[in-house]
Nucleic acid binder design. Structure first.
Lengths: 337, 337
DNA sequence: CTGTTAGCGCATTCAA
DNA sequence: TTGAATGCGCTAACAG
């Protein structure tokens, strides 16, 4: 049997006073007599009264929720980000709704739709690798739901975003490898949709130039991030006439897959072939032979900053203030293992 | 400027018909004339009308949200679980609200409070390691919010739960080690609050007995799961008169920490000292020398099952049906690497 | 086939 | 100091 939850109406009825008096008493409104106030509070306590937030949300047109859309929670990178998001949101009395796109555009669209239905106060998005257009986000504007893209930020004007520039760290990575004596440095890049903003490749090229190394297109392969694709990329690099002695990879997962594969081919990691990658996942600290170095992209921090920005936008919205598009670019950091 | 969102009222006004007609038309109610229906739908389309779910939720006394409370999203184990939760929930038109306790009881309480405020339709919980009593969950009963505990399930009667029994796998682990020739097998257990249900230790003891090995209390240490604590535990085990040649650890993280430390002490993993652990985290596949074996606890699956159970409870609740306490115990599986 | 009305729980304006 | 009345957006019972 559905028990009826206590409401202010119920309290009012029992005390033979009006609903509004109860409401005010519970809010410590100054114009309520001490006696009445105490009575009300006491009964509320006894009945275990909790205001029905859904009613309040409904009335206020606010839900105190923010939606988070990202590819996959199982990747440590994103779970770190969402950890930062949840913490920041929670400390501001917001709560996070989550949706995983699984890098599937249709699912992403459906999630955004659901978030819209739930009237989230704002949305944080790290786009799927299939995402090109932003039509499914445009509509949110009409509903006054601010959107902040983070980490995987689409290359579009007129958006709010928080991401991490990899340009300088990419150059630092090349500097590091060159100092280690490497001259032939390969590169396994990721899907083109994810490459635009972060300037990994640009940094790679700039780093080579800075070190007077000619860019060899045969040393640049790409992976769709699947194990298979990474293996193929590595295979091609290893088959190159002047096989690279070091390889920069899109992220640690690609590096890990590549290393696993390299070991199968009887190559000694960090001897026959070295790796430098991006993400600096905590798990790499447990490896006997981790990538020589990895670029820390501060996913947790990105989550925090993105949430802070989003909360600011939400506040501005409620004050009907206009906020110019803001793009927070964090620095990255080459971490040597 | 806050734009006003379209409502059925607005549509009704423009079409000079009544609100309820609009409502019915949008719901394909049979008693609405085709013409009217088309008109309404057309205008709704044009105005980009979306029903205000918060109003509907409010009216229905349902939110189509489920809360998820767990220690930490950054642990792959839990992020796998939540991945399963999110998927299952989403496929049933539910959305997940998340809260991390960070193994802090007070935070856990506050999160539960928040979930209650948000009137989630149900709650999934993996308790913090500080959690002993369940008072902060009891109150949810009054609000008719069903709770399903998963993975870290408190040892209490009258709860719904989904967890994974480790007893048989623990025995299998010992069998496995014995077959490998190990006779002195140590054990690093976790915090006592997390040990009750899963029967890791019981399995360890049973396994030893089964193999006619005397249980040596000096070979049983415990860790609070921090790096330091694990190191201390390992140190003690290594200092034991008859140092163990193999160690079973509470989970892969403990094993990884222990292995890292063992390497520092110049011990060869899987030669001087071998490890078997629990969780079977995907990351271990990337290790050159992973634990010899690890017990798969199917966190994703647990998340799915827990969500399914919760959704069933929610449905039963709305039908005012009574459901007996259900405790789903999944099997685990020793995976040899 | 369509309109009128009430009400979900609460905050709030206007009266008293 | 308190009460009555209104409305947020929507659904559904009731009335034509």
């Amino acid at each position: 049997m559905e028990k009826k939850l206590p409401t202010i109406k119920e309290i009012a009825r029992r005390l033979n006073i009006s609903i509004s008096t109860v409401s005010r008493a519970l809010h410590d409104h100054p114009s309520i007599g001490l006696r009445t106030k105490m009575q009300v509070k006491k009964l509320a306590q006894e009945l275990n009264y909790i205001p029905n937030q859904t009613a309040i949300f409904f009335k206020q047109g606010k839900t105190f929720t923010i939606g988070v859309v990202l590819p996959n929670l199982r990747e440590e990178y994103f779970s770190s980000a969402i950890s930062g998001i949840e913490e920041t949101a929670f400390d501001s009395e917001y709560i996070a709704l989550i949706g995983q796109s699984h890098d599937d555009l249709n699912r992403e669209k459906k999630i955004v739709e659901t978030m819209k239905k739930h009237r989230v106060d704002g949305l944080l998005v790290s786009v799927s690798k299939e995402t090109r257009g932003l039509e499914h986000f445009e509509e949110l504007k009409q509903y006054n739901i601010p959107v902040v893209f983070f980490d995987r930020v689409p290359d579009a004007p007129d958006i709010h975003s928080v991401w991490c520039s990899l340009y300088h760290s990419s150059i630092a990575a090349i500097d590091f490898l060159v100092k280690k004596g490497h001259k032939r440095i390969g590169y396994i890049q990721g899907p083109s949709t994810l490459n635009i903003k972060n300037e990994r490749l640009q940094g790679y090229v700039a780093g080579l130039k800075k070190n007077k190394i000619v860019v060899d297109e045969l040393l640049i392969e790409s992976s769709d991030l699947s194990l298979n694709s990474t293996q193929q990329a590595l295979d091609k690099l290893l088959a190159a006439k002047n096989r690279p002695t070091a390889i920069v990879t899109f992220n640690d997962y690609v590096a890990l897959d590549a290393m696993k594969f390299a070991r199968k081919k009887k190559l000694k990691i960090n001897k026959d072939i070295s790796f430098v990658s991006y993400a600096n996942l905590p798990v790499t600290t447990y490896l006997e032979t981790p990538p020589l170095a990895s670029v820390e992209q501060f996913p947790f921090e990105q989550g925090v900053r993105a949430t802070e920005l989003l909360l600011r936008l939400i506040k501005a919205k409620s004050l009907s203030e206009n906020v110019p598009y803001e793009n927070v670019v964090l620095g990255s950091e080459l971490v040597i293992h």
